[in-house]
C-alpha cells in the first residue's frame, strides 16, 4: 500500500533535492556539461549584493506577512466561531481568495495598484489624497505584495484556527463563567493556550509558505524596482532562468532550504513544551 507513495516521494522529492545539492557544487548553464567548482558558488554568495539583498527581502516579507496574517486569521476565526447570523456565508467568503488562482489574482491586483488608471489611486484621488506608484516605489512595493498575500491566505489560515477553537471543550468556558472570569481573561487563559497545537501547525506551514513566495511577485513586480521585491526564492528563479546559472541558483536553493529548516526547528522547539492537553 505504501509503495506507490514512496516511489512518488523518492522520484519527485528526494531525487530533485539530491540533484540540487549536487548541482550547487557545479557551474551549469543548462546547455553544456556541468563543471565542478567545489565551494565556489558558496564563496561567491557573501559578495553578491543582489543575493544578500534578496535574503534580507525574504525576512522583511515574512515579518510583514506572518504576524498580520496570523492575528487577522485568529480574529476572523473567533468571529465566525461565535453565534452570528450567516456565519457559514462568512466562512466561505473568507476562504474564497485562497481558492482562486494566485496568478489571476496578481494580474487583477496589478490593475488595482496601477499608478495612472488603477482603482486604488482613482479612489484616493476622489478623497483628495495623492496616490503613489505602489509597485514601482521601492518603499511601497514589498508592503503591497505582502498585503495582497495576507488578503489571499488569511481565510485559509482562519480555517485551522476555527478547527482548533471547535476542539476546545465548552465546559471549560462554562466553568470559567461560573467562576466569574472576564472574556479577555478566558481568551488568554483558556483559548490561546489550547490553540497551541493549531498555532504550531499554522505558523510552521505559513512561515514555510511565505519563505517560498513566488507567484504574486512574479506577476506584480518581477522582483523590481531595483530588486526591492526579489525574495530568495525569486532570486533562484532569476539566476537559473534569466542568467542560466543553474549551479549558482542551486546553491541559493540549498541556502533557502537551510534557512527554512532552521526556523522550522526553532518553532518546533519553542512550541514543544506543554502542547498536549488531555480532556478525556
Amino acid at each position: 500500500m505504501l509503495a506507490p507513495s514512496i516511489i512518488g516521494f523518492a522520484l519527485f522529492l528526494i531525487t530533485p533535492i539530491v540533484v540540487v545539492v549536487a548541482l550547487s557544487f557545479y557551474e551549469w548553464n543548462f546547455l553544456s556539461a556541468p563543471e565542478f567548482v567545489g565551494l565556489d558558488n558558496y564563496r561567491e554568495l557573501a559578495g553578491d549584493e543582489r543575493a544578500m539583498q534578496s535574503i534580507g527581502n525574504t525576512f522583511y516579507y515574512v515579518l510583514l506577512n506572518i504576524p498580520i496574517q496570523t492575528v487577522l486569521a485568529l480574529l476572523l476565526a473567533l468571529g465566525v466561531n461565535s453565534k452570528i447570523k450567516a456565519r457559514n456565508a462568512f466562512r466561505v467568503i473568507y476562504v474564497l481568495p485562497w481558492m482562486a488562482m494566485p496568478v489571476a489574482l496578481g494580474v487583477i491586483w496589478r490593475w488595482v495598484f496601477d499608478p495612472m488608471n488603477g482603482a486604488l489611486n482613482r479612489f484616493l484621488e476622489a478623497l483628495g489624497v495623492d496616490g503613489v506608484a505602489w509597485l514601482t516605489d521601492s518603499t511601497w512595493a514589498m508592503p503591497v505584495i505582502a498585503s495582497v498575500n495576507v488578503w489571499q491566505y488569511t481565510g485559509y489560515t482562519m480555517l485551522f484556527f476555527l478547527a482548533g477553537l471547535q476542539a476546545i471543550p465548552a465546559q471549560l468556558y462554562e466553568a470559567a463563567n461560573v467562576d466569574g472570569a472576564s472574556k479577555p481573561y478566558q481568551f488568554f487563559q483558556i483559548t490561546l493556550p489550547l490553540l497551541r497545537p493549531a498555532m504550531l501547525f499554522v505558523l510552521i506551514t505559513s512561515v514555510i509558505g511565505s519563505f517560498q513566495v513566488f507567484d504574486t511577485i512574479h506577476v506584480m513586480t518581477a522582483g523590481g524596482p531595483d530588486g526591492a521585491t526579489s525574495t530568495l526564492n525569486y532570486q533562484i528563479y532569476l539566476e537559473s532562468f534569466t542568467q542560466r546559472s543553474a549551479g549558482y541558483a542551486s546553491m541559493l536553493a540549498v541556502i533557502l532550504f537551510a534557512i527554512i529548516a532552521l526556523i522550522t526547528l526553532a518553532q518546533v522547539v519553542f512550541f514543544r513544551k506543554r502542547t498536549v492537553y488531555d480532556f478525556s
Binding site: 540533484v19 549536487a22 548541482l23 551549469w28 556539461a33 556541468p34 563543471e35 565542478f36
Partner: peptide, 8 residues
C-alpha cells in the same frame, strides 16, 4: 559529470 547532467 555526464550522469549528473543527464539526471539534472
Amino acid at each position: 559529470k555526464t550522469r549528473l547532467a543527464a539526471l539534472a
